[in-house]
């Protein structure tokens, strides 16, 4: 297990190298001059040229890229063209907000989806199943930002129960988490249901019942536990998506997260900010994926055994 984890972590290095090259290249090679954007409107050509020199924009691309990577090795992701603040610090300021929203939405999603998925699977092809599946179908068919707007309309503007935007205490987290969570829930429900359906047909389920285990135990201990792997896969995928920021929900609720930071920086052509944030997001996503792999081993002894064998 340890060696496997080390290998996974080392694999992140080429990922970071390639992503940084692609993003850095794309930001640099496609039009738009950050110096022009930064200079005041009445700046002379000489002043613009000075800014360009200051930002090192006159160096050839490869020199700039190497300088950037050199800085990264020292833990320096550069400073923003726009705000002149340290990229790493800015990202780290936003990250807790994104983590908060991300974890809360995955929590909401799991809370809705897993019981619903199990329930629909047990009641397959009955009206209960149909209602559950229609719910999931609506969930995947709904644009997420629109759901957010509708929740604001209902809970903030009509009922005045919850704040409509900003990040200020637990109450302000509820609507954004519901918005993102409902979208995720739809997918997790479908996966849970189909995975449970596969498991429910297995012989060992019949055996468990024959041995007189009560139904609850059969479903959860024998059923759910064996159905968990695909469910964890989906949740892990969703989690790593949410961690790059749910730019739509962040826009609707004015949530100061990473998604909005990246989005705004792209439109302002703030190359160091974009490159830095995306690299950090990639690292974070890889870490989540490793975590998911560890969870596989935790829930499935067969997978654990594979790791052990490999190390021998």
């Amino acid at each position: 297990m340890g060696r496997y984890l080390l290998k996974r972590l080392l694999l992140m290095i080429p990922v970071v190298l390639i992503t940084s090259l692609v993003i850095f290249g794309a930001m640099n090679l496609t039009g738009g001059d950050p110096a022009l954007a930064l200079a005041p409107d009445n700046a002379t050509e000489a002043q613009v040229e000075m800014i360009r020199e200051e930002l090192g924009l006159n160096d050839p691309f490869i020199v700039r890229y190497l300088k950037y990577m050199g800085g990264m090795l020292k833990g320096d992701l550069g400073t923003s063209y726009v705000t002149n603040k340290d990229v790493f610090k800015t990202y780290m300021q936003r990250l807790p907000n994104t983590l908060e929203l991300g974890c809360a939405s995955v929590f909401v999603a799991v809370l809705i989806a897993i019981p619903l998925g199990i329930y629909t699977a047990i009641n397959q092809n009955t009206w209960k199943d149909n209602v559950g599946m229609v719910f999931a179908l609506f969930g995947v068919s709904m644009p997420n930002f629109w759901l957010g707007l509708m929740l604001v309309l209902l809970f903030s503007l009509k009922l005045h129960w919850l704040p409509s935007s900003g990040r200020n205490g637990l109450a302000s987290l509820i609507l954004p988490a519901l918005t993102v969570g409902m979208g995720l829930a739809a997918l997790i429900t479908r996966t849970t249901r189909s995975s449970m359906l596969d498991v429910l047909r297995q012989d060992y389920m019949r055996t468990a019942r024959a041995k007189g285990a009560d139904e609850r135990r059969v479903i959860f201990r024998h059923g759910l536990k064996n159905a968990l792997i695909p469910i964890i896969t989906v949740i892990g995928m969703q989690l790593s998506n949410v961690l790059t920021g749910s730019v739509l929900a962040e826009t609707v609720f004015a949530w100061p997260g990473v998604g909005r930071l990246i989005f705004d920086s792209i439109s302002k052509r703030d190359t160091p900010m974009v490159t830095g944030c995306i690299i950090l997001s990639c690292v974070l996503m890889s870490l989540v994926n490793v975590l998911v792999d560890v969870l596989y081993a935790f829930f499935d002894p067969r997978i654990k055994a594979q790791y052990v064998r490999r190390e021998r």
């Binding site: 609506f138 995947v140 068919s141 709904m142 644009p143 629109w146 707007l149 509708m150």
Partner: peptide, 8 residues
């Protein structure tokens, strides 16, 4: 939003 939802 309803238009998008029903289409999808």
């Amino acid at each position: 939003g309803l238009a998008i939802m029903f289409t999808v």
